[in-house]
C-alpha cells in the first residue's frame, strides 16, 4: 500500500499501475503458453487455452479501466462468452478426435 502511495506521489497515475498489472497478466499468459505448446496431452492444452482465455478477459477488463474506455468491456464480455465455446469445442473434439461431434 505504501508502495502505491509512493508511486502516486511520484507522479504515476492509477492507469499506469493498471497497465503494469495488465503487463504482469500478459507475462503469466506467456508462462501458460508453455503448457499450451508443450502440454504432453491434449487435456493440458485445453486447460491451458481456457486459462489463457480467462487471463485475456482479465487483461481486457484491466485495459478498459486503464484507458478509461468503459465500452472496451464489450470485448471482454464477448471473449468471456465465446471462450466457453472454444473450450467445449476443443474438449469435445479431443474425445475420439471429433468422432463425437
Amino acid at each position: 500500500m505504501t508502495l502505491v502511495d509512493a508511486g502516486v506521489a511520484a507522479g504515476y497515475t492509477v492507469a499506469d499501475f493498471l497497465l503494469l498489472a495488465a503487463a504482469g497478466f500478459t507475462l503469466l499468459a506467456i508462462g501458460m503458453l508453455y503448457r499450451a505448446v508443450r502440454g504432453p496431452t491434449m487435456q493440458d492444452r485445453v486447460l491451458a487455452v481456457n486459462v489463457l482465455g480467462t487471463n485475456t478477459v482479465v487483461i481486457l477488463a484491466i485495459l478498459a479501466a486503464a484507458l478509461s474506455e468503459p465500452t472496451f468491456l464489450d470485448i471482454a464480455l464477448v471473449y468471456a462468452l465465446l471462450n466457453f465455446l472454444m473450450a467445449i469445442a476443443i474438449s469435445k473434439f479431443t474425445v475420439e478426435r471429433g468422432g463425437v461431434l
Partner: peptide, 22 residues
Amino acid sequence: LAAVIVFGAYSLGMAALYTFYR
C-alpha cells in the same frame, strides 16, 4: 490440433493488442 489451439491463444493476444491501441 496443437497448432489450432495455439492459434486461438494468438488471437487472444491480438485482441488485447488491438484493444490497447484503441
